[in-house]
């Protein structure tokens, strides 16, 4: 008992060596494990980016990047995703200080912004396919739909996860396991925004350069 109290007292000190600190708390381990998953996801995206960069000019006589991409639409998508990342951060703060209403509000705002992003992206895809620029038209379009589509798929999965977390939060409250899952969700959501930064730079902005 005394030892435990002393251990806790020591843990508060910053100067403890990593080999003497004992096993890390579960919340740190869960965050680390999820971070490894996110990195492996980013490595997968790097392969998709590489194939896109190689095939970007291979339009096989079809529509090219300059003709297809609409910068206003991309700017709106970027703004929506960035704001949803910010509101997700606000949700994390509300979770840390255990404020129910603010957490729900943050989750709902994050969901709405993410859903609006997804709607814009789907509209863009539909417009492209209507112009005859479907994935099977050229190597460039196959690579484009694979890269941007898998980002969109990740956003879809994130939205489903967020709905699940709202349900869990309302049923079980701020239990440790729910809080851990919410933090993993916010990591996932911020990582998606990082990948989008690369997409709008490499695919859209570099695509419209003369």
């Amino acid at each position: 008992m005394n030892v435990a109290v002393e251990m806790n007292a020591v843990r508060q000190g910053e100067s403890l060596d990593i080999s003497e600190a004992g096993p890390a708390p579960k919340r740190i381990i869960a965050g680390f494990g999820f971070w490894i998953f996110l990195l492996s996801d980013i490595v997968m995206f790097s392969a998709l980016f590489a194939s896109y960069a190689v095939l970007a000019k291979a339009s096989a006589g079809g529509l090219t990047t300059v003709q297809l991409f609409d910068q206003r639409n991309v700017a709106m998508e970027t703004a929506l995703l960035l704001l949803s990342s910010y509101s997700c951060g606000m949700m994390s703060l509300a979770i840390n200080s255990r404020r129910y209403l603010a957490t729900f509000l943050g989750a709902v705002v994050t969901f709405l912004l993410g859903a609006a992003f997804l709607k814009l992206e789907l509209r863009e895809f539909q417009g492209m396919i209507a112009l005859g620029a479907a994935p099977e038209r050229s190597a460039f379009l196959s690579a484009f739909f694979t890269l941007v589509g898998s980002h969109g798929l990740h956003v879809t999965v994130g939205l489903a996860w967020l709905v699940l977390m709202i349900v869990q939060l309302s049923l079980r409250g701020f239990q440790d396991v729910v809080v851990r899952r919410l933090h993993c969700f916010s990591l996932f959501w911020h990582a998606l925004d990082i990948i989008w930064v690369l997409i709008f730079t490499v695919v859209y902005l570099m695509g419209v350069l003369p």
Binding site: Q12, I28, F32, L93, N96, H183, C184, L187
Partner: peptide, 15 residues
């Protein structure tokens, strides 16, 4: 750390 809770108790957390 990512996914980590603050070391300070929730009541004293400075948001």
């Amino acid at each position: 750390a990512p996914g980590d809770l603050p070391a300070i108790p929730a009541s004293e957390q400075n948001a």
